[in-house]
Amino acid sequence: MRRSTAAAVGTLTGAALILGVRLSVQPPAAPDAAPAAQELTEEPAPAETSAAAKKPAAKESASADKKKESAKPTEDAGGLKAGTYKGKAVQNPYGTVQVTIKVSGGKVSSANATYPKTGFSATINPAAVTKLNQETLTAQSAKVDAVSGATFTSQSYVTSLQAALDAAGA
């Protein structure tokens, strides 16, 4: 492992520890803090590099601290060797934290951290957060029994799809 890569791993491990401890001692994150939790899921890094590009745009609004940390090593790197690097598993009072980074195109393309899932630690660390999947918004017509939408008034009901359904079914 090259020194610059090791430095990157070290920095990320540090960052993950700070974030990890912060997550650990806090009650379930408030919505403002939620994007940070979203980034630190327990999911393994995606297998293909193209997956990184496809990530939901929401992730781009993720924790600013985290971004700073991952940007720094990339700047100094001047071409890191491609591959997946696992950081040293670090013990802290809440359990073991391990960071994995992926390098492609001479840059850190993704960073993930694992957190303890069992025992005492699991009661402190937030559960792995399921992410919402981003997809393309479609506009379709289909046969349905009911339509869910923002609440309409008695007046605007008349022009709604539900009104058309009711008229057809009556």
Partner: peptide, 15 residues
């Protein structure tokens, strides 16, 4: 039951 979710810009379409 089949439930359509209204398209947020096209009132006559489902998302």
């Amino acid at each position: 039951w089949r439930v359509g979710i209204r398209h947020p810009w096209q009132a006559d379409k489902l998302a």
